[in-house]
Amino acid sequence: MFIISLTYTAGLEALEPHRPAHRAWLDQGIADGWMLLAGPRNPRDGGIILARGTRAELQEQAATDPFFQNGLSTFDLIEFNAVRAAAGVTLESLLA
Rank of each mutant, 00 (worst) to 15 (best):
P43L: 10
E92W: 00
G39H: 04
A87G: 00
L94Y: 05
A86P: 02
I49G: 01
D45W: 00
A85Q: 13
G47W: 06
E13P: 00
I3T: 14
G71R: 06
R41T: 15
A51D: 12
I4F: 02
Q69I: 07
G29W: 05
E57V: 04
L95C: 01
M1Q: 07
A24M: 11
I49V: 15
W25Q: 04
L15H: 04
R55T: 08
D45M: 12
A62S: 14
P17F: 06
R41H: 09
Q59F: 09
I30Q: 05
R84A: 13
F80G: 11
L12H: 02
I49R: 03
M1L: 11
M35P: 00
L72Y: 02
R52P: 01
T90Q: 03
W25C: 01
E60C: 00
G71S: 08
T9S: 10
A56E: 15
L15Q: 05
A31N: 13
T90M: 00
L94I: 14
I49S: 04
P40K: 14
F75T: 07
T54Q: 05
D32I: 06
F75C: 04
R44L: 13
F67C: 05
P20T: 07
A51L: 09
G71D: 09
R41C: 02
I78W: 10
F75W: 12
Q28D: 12
I48A: 14
G88W: 06
I78A: 01
D27K: 15
A14Y: 01
F68T: 11
Q69L: 13
F75V: 08
L91I: 15
L12P: 00
N42D: 14
T74A: 01
Y8C: 04
G46D: 09
P20I: 07
R44E: 13
P40Y: 05
I4C: 02
T9P: 00
I4E: 04
G71C: 07
A10G: 02
G39W: 05
D65A: 03
I48W: 05
A86C: 07
P20R: 08
E16K: 15
A82H: 04
M35L: 15
L95V: 14
R41M: 13
I78K: 12
P17D: 03
G47K: 09
H22Q: 07
D65C: 01
G29H: 02
E57F: 07
P20N: 05
T90D: 03
I30M: 14
I78E: 10
R44K: 15
S93L: 07
T7I: 10
E79L: 01
S93E: 15
A82R: 15
A10L: 04
A62K: 11
M35N: 05
V83A: 05
T9L: 15
V89M: 10
T9Y: 00
G29F: 02
Q28E: 15
L12G: 11
